[in-house]
Design a protein around this nucleic acid. Structure first.
Lengths: 202, 202, 202, 202
DNA sequence: CATGAATGAGTGTTCATTCAT
DNA sequence: GATGAATGAACACTCATTCAT
């Protein structure tokens, strides 16, 4: 099989990432052996190592793919005018994904990537970029809303952005452990959140 | 009549859990070898296996300890009257811990336990209990607040409880990846959150 | 009627042997992978296997080439009359090669072939022929010299031949480990050797 | 098996080095697998790695042992007065070893170590020390002999020392490839060598 | 003829766990 | 009770070789 097209090469990479993702979601990064990925992908060890330098490289490639997906979701939201609309557009794909039963795999992988990022600096960078970028955009929108008097001016935009992101992250976490969560009720609850002025507790 | 007092046994267990925690926080569960724990604890492999049946058992014991700590924090908060006061008392130890530079270890362990729980049912149960119990209590308080007209009645108490917990979890996550977060600004921002009635978006 | 001329085939073989030699001198036989030879030669694995049945076959071909080179040096020396002249003609190309900075590669390969010959009978045969042939010729000359009274008659011609060869081999070895050796001083020293009659020690 | 004596530890190390030496002599360093050493030694992989950090470490330890043996032979020779006596004392153990049929293993290992030294700097150092030390001592003796007029003064002592060492090395080489060599004839031949003054060729 | 993607048995090494002392 | 030497299955990864194109 000589000189194979770039299309073919990309397909092979995806095939491996996909198979590895299945294994990782099922068993975790460390309990998944390369043999597992070999079995799942139907390829040979040598074939896999032709496309990825190491097991860690597969994990990083998977994180990269997720990152790319998130970036495109963010870019789509960016087109929206108004903080409200922006937030909605940002939330939509995330919560849609969470609603999708088939995305169970995605959630489990996400949680593992979060933990693994503590150990793998390359992974940490990817994961952080996936959080920092939307946070920056959010903070900008929040500052604009504050300028218009729609939000209390004394709050740090970055802190408010972190709060909003925490609402996403926390939900992902809770859903990873309990698939039966009522997403709609949660979305409704966060929809009713307002940041009020004045003497707030805690 | 045991040769060694229960006190002694407990001290040994704590010594092992402590040493293991140091290793886990530094290297993660899977990159930590029993030899690492042996070195860190100053005990022999045989001694460790006298107190714990396996490496997983140590992880579970550590999760249990954290669980116990959280339960006592919750119990203390329970004594408080009023949702506001309850929340404050609940938040205090958590955010104090997060503020403590020395608790970096705690945070890293927490994130790893969250991920590991996906693989270890016993761990999942421990972790879930640590979330479900406060959520139940929160939901009760929220229902009471709704009855008093302090919160929109149409929101599911459980969903609101999940929102509040997400604010904690999300922050822990963000702090695990970035130690420099401004905790006070975050606390102030969540303090200004209000759940408002009416036609809320998203 | 071959599709490709013998000339072409020979050129390809030489190209491969040359590339392999570079790799072997740099990394040793066993640390050199076929991929290394592929890279160094600019050919494909398939192409290499068209000309050589295996990695070992390349090593053997390389030993053969060296052997051929040595045989021609010996043949040239054979034309000389007199033991002295013969030895000089034999020594010349060898020491010239050792003097040549660029022959570092040759020396390293030689040492490796010597070791590998212990494992590969085909190689052993090639290497031994390269030593046995000159030794036989040397022994003949020595016997002649003894007949003329130029050398002690009681010495076994073969043993004396071995001594002379050892002077070459030993130097090659020493130079392989230390490139800074003073060749001229060594050549002068061996030039002053004489085999004397009588009661010699050790 | 707790706290085992140093004697025991040394015995284990020797057991492993011995087993590895058998394998290496039979198959060469690179064709010998750790499994081979496991089988030959009767130990488990883990046990071997308790005593040696790597396969290379075993090779180096073996080289070290040989080095130590050689050093003691040299030290014994050092006690002798007179260049002649010194050389004899130096030659004795070496040629005795070569005479010993059981030392076939030793010779094969030696040749392999020589080749491997080209690739492993630590090995190169050990091998070179084993050659440099006796050469230095020889050169001293030769200079002394020159001072007494027993040797041509114009020869570089170091070069003469190299010549003498080459006579050992070359023989080892020739014997590695051909076990049937007549050692006595060789020893007699080198015993009749003299370095003569005057205008010597090539 | 040439290619290079693919193979898969085999490599050196690790590490949770055991058990003789 | 405590020790730590020993186990050995499993691991991530390599590489000489093949063969469909």
């Amino acid at each position: 099989m000589p000189k194979v097209s770039q299309v073919h090469r990309d397909a092979r990479r995806r095939q491996i990432i996909e198979a590895a993702g299945d294994c990782f979601a099922r068993e975790g990064f460390h309990r998944t052996t390369m043999q597992d990925i070999v079995r799942q992908s139907g390829l040979s060890p040598g074939a896999i190592y032709r496309y990825f330098a190491s097991k860690d490289a597969i994990i990083e490639a998977m994180a990269d793919e997720r990152h790319t997906w998130e970036q495109s979701a963010i870019a789509a939201a960016q087109a929206q005018q108004g903080t409200e609309r922006f937030l909605e557009m940002l939330a939509q794909p995330f919560f849609d994904a969470l609603r999708d039963e088939g995305e169970r795999r995605r959630r489990r992988l996400g949680l593992q990537l979060w933990a693994e990022a503590l150990r793998n600096p390359r992974l940490l960078q990817i994961v952080r970029e996936g959080v920092d970028e939307p946070r920056r955009l959010l903070a900008e929108r929040i500052a604009a809303a504050q300028a218009q008097g729609d939000l209390p001016a004394h709050l740090a935009p970055d802190a408010v952005a972190r709060v909003i992101i925490a609402l996403f992250q926390g939900f992902i976490l809770q859903q990873a452990w309990d698939e039966q969560i009522d997403i709609d009720a949660y979305v409704e609850a966060i929809g009713c959140i307002q940041f009020v002025d004045g003497d707030c507790g805690s």
